[in-house]
Design a protein around this nucleic acid. Structure first.
Length: 832
RNA sequence: GCGAAAGUGGCGGAAUUGGUAGACGCGCCGGCCUUAGGAGCCGGUGGGGUAACCCGUGGGGGUUCGAGUCCCCCCUUUCGCACCA
């Protein structure tokens, strides 16, 4: 048994860990701290990719580290297994989505197991199974009861390629987050979750999520997009209609010279019913509404609009102002209608100039004159003093906001309000492979929730996939046709399924109680594991999953299910794995296959390289030569241990009575320094790449020393120090290369498992050097190094330094004006 | 345009947070071993210079005895948001 045969040892240790149930977590051990190490669960697309490998290698390293530190660790994996690819496979290859998904899970589970990841497989879940999704339905019904889930008709994002609507979070620069095709606007009757009820709390709590990356918190903050301002009602001249606008600058209302509506504004048809401009307006609307979102982005450069022929009345001044429809007014923002103040808003200004509309300054800059509307070349959007604003003249902007807000409220034509960019979460999807929405539409009773005792509403299996639009479930009469739970009359089931982001909102709560058939989970079993200590995943979920799951936790709290506000204590976003500077993709032909790598090098090498090649939060470029380097390191280490082990004292031999000296002492020092460094970098800092370096360094120190003990008598304690070193290395490498570490541990004569052993503790008394290097600088430039006993005082160091030839040369003929002395480190002589 | 992060050898990256820049690995060069080596081992490797030394962490200023690290300005790259009323 010598050399390094990863295939053999990895299979062997995986089955031994499994037999011993090493990574099972049963119940809660009150004598230990509970540590919940969580990684974002994978979508079972077919095969593991390197991004998964890196994600799970990081998580497993942290989980194993905490386990060895005596904490009770929960480390579980599951499958985010609803979603479109399964359905597309059905359309393209005729495979049943369920079969396709479960096959993929089986494949990928094997791949994960081959990596030697320490999961509690008894808690594995798959979100596509009725045991899981019935609780999505249960949650939906609870939200329906509380009014958190509601149904309404609203313009939504439509992906033509995915044939379904998308939530705002799932539209990236006008394109679908999944397939990158342009997104269109369509009006739909849909189910929404009232996430906006939690907007303020989602925002406020960000300050408390201090261990989260600043980047993610900023992204969420911007996404929630809180904006303070006021709503104002403008009467429409000659009509009962009132147009509600939102503004953050109520102080500029006297400068509002026109209103502008988004093309989707619901009152437009009423406004133009009887005006001569009707046809022109309709033509403009038709053109605008035909555009997809991406084209609208592209068109944004040019402001376009059309006059409706109608006028509104400024509630402050009584002035009649024209009502326009403009392409730069977005239906999702504010009320979808604005009062335009061209003198004080760049966009309004550009539009006004283009269409010859009135520009009227009503704010005087603090350090300048009121701009002249004839000659001004841009809007003044800063703060200043109100003017041309009747009774509000002379007020500073903040005061004017206050006074005019009060005035509007007293006269009931407006109120101060806060808007958010965040919109309610539309969760209906016109697709098959997802959680059926548990609602029955009755012609008499309207939408009625399915009674709890009829859950789960099962997805029908016999179904044909045509790829045509519309909800596939709508074509399954046996699914659709049912009776109303209230009146028992004939009724139809809702044929949409839930957004798959619902599934991932609460899966990590289910891990704590995965087989519960009475409720989603028993909080008594779960609470001591929450909040999740560390959550590792990609940053791409910053404004999707990570907002949804925070909302879901608050919602569960309000249902009385949990008593926490935030689910995750520390978030860690790992970087992408690239190849040759590019994202791995089939089209680029630069995909690296984990199976192939494991077959060639073994899982330990792959894991080691994933963690060594770059800091975990940064991108990692996959590099074959670097992998070789990690493999060589393991080979060399195995060989070194093999060569020396018979010359080492047996396991458990006490420290030599006479202590260690010379090389032995130096090695012990290095060993304990390494333990300290690894512990620090693995724990609070998560600089995993430097941990590997540190262990390599230790081996570079230890390996040459082994020759001194092989075939020689040893009276310095070196053999003992070498055993301490190699045992420590086994322990320190366990989070990174666990099979290898077990193997070395065993070769050193120790009983298994190193994975279940206690993390080593660095001995401070051994770490300190008795001789230190003190550098000598003259005027800040390095001139000499001195090797001095630890703790020498300033005067001794100074006289020692003066003896140095190079130092003396630079002091020659000059006056030492100042001496800076950092004990055991540095001496700086300032001369002049 | 706004916001955030980052720029260090030929490459990936270290630097315990103001105190020896370049740890560790890759690559490269030289040597040993070998019929041979894309294996292994040993040594070298920021640039310039025979040397003393000089230069060097994107560029320019500054603070300091001392700056990769702190401050100001600029450049570049990546990411996020993008007419947010």
């Amino acid at each position: 048994m010598s050399g390094y045969d990863p295939k053999a040892i990895e299979a062997r240790w995986q089955s031994r860990w499994n037999e011993a149930g090493l990574f099972r977590t049963d119940g809660v051990d009150p004598s230990r701290k509970q540590y919940y190490c969580l990684e974002m669960l994978p979508y079972p697309s077919g095969k593991l990719h390197m991004g998964h490998v890196r994600n799970y290698a990081i998580g497993d390293a942290i989980a194993r580290f905490h386990r060895m530190q005596g904490e009770q660790v929960l480390h579980v994996i599951g499958w985010d297994s609803f979603g479109l690819p399964a359905e597309n496979a059905a359309i393209q290859k005729g495979e049943a989505p369920r079969r396709w998904t479960l096959d993929n899970i089986a494949t990928m589970r094997t791949q994960l197991q081959r990596l030697g990841l320490g999961y509690d497989w008894n808690r594995e879940i798959a979100t596509c199974l009725p045991e899981y999704y019935r609780w999505n339905q249960w949650f939906f019904l609870r939200m329906l009861e509380k009014g958190v889930a509601y149904r309404t008709n609203r313009p939504l994002n439509w992906c033509d390629s995915c044939n379904t609507v998308l939530a705002n979070e799932q539209v990236v620069s006008g394109r679908c987050w999944r397939c990158d095709s342009p997104v269109a606007r369509r009006q739909f009757e849909q189910w929404f979750l009232r996430i906006t009820d939690y907007a303020q709390e989602l925002l406020d709590n960000l300050d408390r999520l201090e261990p989260w990356p600043e980047k993610v918190r900023t992204m969420q903050k911007n996404w929630i997009g809180r904006s303070e301002g006021a709503e104002l009602l403008f009467d429409v001249d000659g009509s009962d209609l009132k147009i509600k606008v939102f503004t953050t600058r109520i102080d500029t209302t006297y400068g509002a010279t026109y209103l502008a509506l988004a093309a989707e504004h619901p009152d437009i048809q009423e406004l133009i019913r009887d005006v001569p401009e009707r046809d022109a307006v309709q033509a403009f609307l038709d053109e605008q509404l035909a555009h997809n979102l991406e084209d609208r982005f592209a068109d944004a450069a040019e402001k376009l609009g059309v006059f409706t022929g109608r006028y509104a009345v400024n509630p402050f001044s009584g002035e009649r102002v024209p009502i326009w429809i403009a392409n730069f007014v977005l239906t999702d923002v504010g009320t979808g209608a604005i009062m335009s103040v061209p003198a004080h808003d760049e966009r309004d200004f550009a539009f006004a100039r283009k269409y010859g509309l009135t520009i009227r300054p009503v704010v005087k800059p603090v350090d300048g004159a009121v701009p002249d509307p004839e000659t001004m070349t841009g809007a003044f959007s800063g703060y200043g003093t109100s003017c041309a604003s009747a009774g509000f003249d002379g007020l500073a902007t903040e005061e004017a906001k206050e006074a005019m807000g009060n005035h509007a409220e007293q006269n009931r034509f407006g109120k101060r309000t806060v808007t958010y960019r965040l919109k309610d979460w539309g969760i209906s999807r016109q697709r098959y492979w997802g959680t059926p929405i548990p609602v029955i539409h009755c012609p008499d009773c309207g939408p009625v929730g399915v009674p709890d005792d009829q859950l789960p509403v099962l997805l029908p299996e016999e179904i044909e996939f045509t790829g045509e639009g519309g909800s596939p479930l709508a074509r399954v009469p046996s699914f659709v046709e049912t009776t109303c739970p209230t009146c028992k009359g004939p009724a139809r089931r809702d044929t949409d399924t839930m957004d798959t982001f619902v599934d991932s909102c609460w899966y990590y709560f289910r891990y704590l109680d995965p087989k519960n058939s009475d409720q989603p989970f028993d909080w008594k079993k779960a609470r001591s594991w929450f909040p999740v200590d560390l959550y590792i995943g990609g940053v791409e979920h910053a404004t999707m999953h990570l907002i949804y799951t925070r909302f879901w936790t608050m919602m569960m709290r309000d249902l009385g299910l949990v008593d926490i506000d935030e689910p995750v204590n520390r978030l860690f976003t790992q970087g992408m794995v690239n190849k040759d500077g590019f994202k791995m993709s089939k089209s680029k032909g630069n995909v690296v296959d984990p199976d192939d790598l494991v077959a060639r090098y073994g899982a330990d090498t792959i894991r080691l390289f994933s963690l060594f090649a770059a800091p975990p939060d940064r991108g990692l470029d996959w590099n074959e030569a670097g992998v070789e380097g990690c493999y060589r390191f393991l080979v060399r280490l195995a060989r070194t241990v093999d060569n020396v082990v018979s010359s080492l004292p047996g396991p458990g031999t006490p420290e030599p009575a006479g202590g260690c000296s010379g090389d032995a002492l130096a090695l012990r020092r290095k060993t304990h320094q390494t333990i300290a460094r690894v512990t620090f970098n693995l724990g609070p800092r998560m600089h995993l790449n430097t941990v590997v370096s540190a262990v390599m360094e230790l081996i570079n120190t230890a390996a040459p020393l082994t020759e001194q003990v092989v075939g020689h008598d040893d009276d310095s304690g070196l053999a003992w120090a070498l055993r301490e070193c190699f045992e420590s290395v086994s322990l320190l490498l366990t989070p990174f290369a666990p099979h290898f570490a077990e193997d070395i541990w065993e070769r050193l004569g120790n009983a298994p498992f190193v994975s279940d052993s206690t993390w080593p503790v660095a001995r401070e008394d051994l770490m300190e050097e008795d001789e230190v290097t003190v550098v000598v600088q003259v005027n800040g430039k390095l001139r000499a190094r001195m090797f001095l006993p630890r703790g020498v005082d300033r005067d001794t160091a100074l006289s020692k330094a003066r003896e140095d030839e190079a130092v003396a040369r630079h002091l020659d003929g000059k006056q030492v004006r100042k001496v800076i002395f950092v004990p055991d480190k540095l001496l700086n002589l300032v001369v002049g």
